[in-house]
């Protein structure tokens, strides 16, 4: 009970602290030309603004997350017992990820799914980068304006179709009696249909395709501002094309590469539709486990704990990668 109340008090306390700091700041460094928020907007309009922003920031963003954090530190109880003597703070939900509470054995299934999801997301990110870098480079530097517009249209229009429909379409293509297998068997490349879905080809293809734009546009933005003369200068000095990319284009586009890779990794690790529709029968994606805790077994505390484990791991991984990135950036400069 007290901890759930605490969640609602915490943002209020933070807001109060910030308000006090702002008051102190305005007293210490008084600028007579500076108009306060209410002087600029009028009292009534100012109050409306503040209430709207506060409602959005608190009730729609902050509190749901905080509530989930608190929930993840509670046991799963029937509604009648919530707030009762058994409703205590516990790390049992986090522990259950490592040790299965039913048989007290190591929770191999979930740990495996977790590691697999992370590694598969890394693979998807790498695959996506390999596909998107040439596209982005072509759009930003090589292509004529007209062709670039066509290509962009071709990239964007399929995304008007919703994600689940797209995943199903891919499933139809990749199924054992699907178009691709029929073609392969038709031209005699294979006798029996290849199980694209079972061997996770479908999963990788689906995830890469789902986040294509998320990778293309940061890369495009970064490469687009590169002076063409830089590329020509490197070429003129004798660099073959791949050294131009290694030494000139990629170091320049590093911020874009980092942002594209981070987003694709985060989104794949947290994706739900593509793994569910395109993953093999033995493939267990970590977010599917989280989903099942929430909607199958109605175990919100454990689902929340799993979700935060995934979030924390992903953030740590991305931070680590960015660190490594910076080091290599330093070496390029030196």
């Amino acid at each position: 009970m007290s901890s759930r109340l605490f969640v609602f008090i915490l943002p209020v306390v933070v807001i109060a602290i910030f308000w006090a700091m702002a008051r102190r700041e305005s007293k210490l460094a008084h600028d007579p030309t500076h108009k306060s928020f209410f002087e600029r907007n009028g009292t009534s309009l100012g109050i409306v603004f503040i209430l709207l922003v506060a409602f959005w920031a608190l009730f729609l963003v902050t509190l749901p997350y905080l509530y989930m954090v608190v929930e993840s530190f509670h046991p799963k109880l029937p509604p009648a017992q919530r707030g009762g003597p058994t409703d205590v703070l516990t790390i049992a939900q986090y522990k259950s990820f490592f040790v299965n509470p039913i048989d007290n054995e190591v929770n191999g299934t979930h740990i495996y799914a977790f590691v697999f999801s992370i590694l598969a997301s890394v693979a998807v990110t790498a695959l996506n980068f390999a596909i998107c870098y040439p596209i982005a480079y072509y759009m930003a530097q090589a292509g004529t304006a007209q062709k670039v517009r066509l290509l962009m249209l071709g990239l964007i229009v399929p995304y008007w179709v919703n994600e689940i429909l797209r995943a199903f379409a891919l499933r139809l293509l990749l199924a054992s009696k699907g178009l691709i297998n029929q073609m392969l068997m038709g031209i005699g490349l294979t006798e029996t249909p290849i199980d694209f879905l079972g061997n996770n080809t479908g999963l990788y293809v689906g995830l890469s395709y789902a986040y294509l734009l998320v990778m293309v546009f940061p890369l495009y933005n970064a490469i687009e501002s590169l002076d063409k003369n830089q590329i020509e200068a490197a070429r003129d000095l004798g660099a073959p094309w791949w050294k131009i990319h290694r030494d000139v284009v990629m170091p320049y586009a590093k911020p874009g590469i980092a942002s594209g890779c981070t987003m694709v990794f985060m989104l794949s690790a947290g994706s739900l539709a593509a793994p569910q529709f395109l993953g093999g029968p033995s493939t267990l994606w970590f977010t599917s486990i989280v989903y099942d805790f929430f909607f199958q077994s109605f175990n919100w505390p454990r689902g929340a704990a799993y979700a935060f484990i995934l979030l924390a791991a992903c953030i740590a991984f991305v931070m680590l990668m960015l660190r490594l990135f910076k080091v290599s950036l330093g070496e390029t400069i030196r």
């Binding site: 020509e232 490197a234 070429r235 660099a239 170091p251 390029t332």
Partner: peptide, 19 residues
């Protein structure tokens, strides 16, 4: 251009800013 015995100095110099 990478195989010719010429070297070009660009109008905006095109030096590599990260090196």
């Amino acid at each position: 251009p990478n195989k010719r015995p010429t070297a070009l100095i660009f109008q905006n110099l095109a030096l590599f800013p990260l090196m």
